[in-house]
Design a protein around this nucleic acid. Structure first.
Lengths: 197, 197
DNA sequence: CACCAAAGAGGACATTTGTCCCTGTTTTAC
DNA sequence: GTAAAACAGGGACAAATGTCCTCTTTGGTG
């Protein structure tokens, strides 16, 4: 039954104080596509259109892409109880430059843009929540950009540990390095306290 | 008269194909505060709340902040015929970490959050346009973040020149360096072709 | 007109960061 | 259970980047 697949979503929306009636929530649940994925499965490939907005009930995802030299760069980690998508591809239904991959076995709820747009039009509280999410994303993105252009690798690492305690235990260090935009070597040196300053 | 102060805004909205009626536009104009500023004037100081959303009729602004060592970092250049604000401070009406400064004599139209929110509620086309602006901002911010963590200083510079031809002629190089997150020395070396690769 | 501040190029040097190797350990796959 | 791959630390070295300094030019200001 759909309802039990949606229990994490329900508690998440409640915790976020999104005022959804039972009917609202039934609409949202009915439009959701449930998907269970194994570690290393790709939810989106570069070149594909990102058709879905995703709520992660459980698990852990990353969004990344490759540069011209074939190096991976991680733009985002997405943990359980949060929303994600590749925004540019999803908004415009245009090909994505990014991959989305499961870093752990995960359980997801997904909505196509068409169905989600209908929900937004029908449910003002969902619309308001969605706008809030966008704002939060924008502010987080700008703050991270500021760190990226202003902080030393060491400061970036400290900031990462502060901001996302727990992720360090879930992903390989090289992915943290990739997320921070430094080499694994630099990250190792920082962690070993091998910097004399 | 307000109307002529708003002519640039009118042509901008027309060019962006925002379907505003004459009445809509009259409402928007009536709520606007016109301000003319001289080069080097501050429109927002760190610690202040950003009370306004700004349309730049003419001129050029920058948004920047200081890090712990007192170094300036430029987050954004805003040229004429575009909108700007300090989003996080404006949204939450909370103290800003950023400064906004005129880099050239500029002419601005400004709306308080209260008055702009009223306009958004009253004018669906403005609301839709505003949402589009937010999306564009988010996508631009993410793309820039990707460059920041993935590209070499040289690639960042090339990208800057491609993306913002013209800015180079309007601002000191040290500000470009600050925007890119590299030292002036590095930028000079790139421009002199002093890198042997 | 004179003066001062800002801009930016260049040199010298130190530091940081990255790349390339290797090694030992842990995890994954069959 | 075993082989293979991934992970992460270490050393050696090279390259990139930053800091500090000087010098010259330019532009603004009184």
């Amino acid at each position: 039954m759909m309802t039990d697949k949606c229990s994490e979503l329900k508690s998440f929306m409640a915790k976020q104080r999104v005022p959804l009636s039972e009917e609202d929530f039934a609409l949202i649940s009915a439009a959701a596509v449930y998907k269970s994925v194994r570690k290393k499965e790709l939810l989106l490939q570069a070149g594909e259109v990102c058709r879905f907005k995703i709520f992660i009930s459980q698990g852990f995802l990353r969004t990344f892409r490759f540069d011209g030299e074939g190096n991976e760069h991680i733009l985002q980690f997405s943990s359980g109880q949060s929303w994600t998508t590749e925004g540019e591809s999803y908004s415009n239904q245009s090909p994505s430059a990014y991959y989305i991959e499961a870093l752990e076995d995960s359980e997801l709820l997904m909505w196509t843009k068409d169905s989600f747009d209908q929900l937004l039009a029908a449910i003002p509280a969902l619309k308001a929540f969605s706008e809030q999410l966008i704002f939060n994303n924008l502010h987080a993105s700008r703050n991270r950009l500021y760190k990226a252009i202003s902080a030393s690798p060491e400061e970036k690492y400290e900031d990462f540990v502060q901001t996302y305690p727990g992720i360090l235990q879930r992903v390989p260090l090289r992915m943290v390095a990739s997320y921070l935009g430094v080499s694994l070597k630099t990250l190792t040196r920082i962690r070993q306290g091998q910097l004399q300053r």
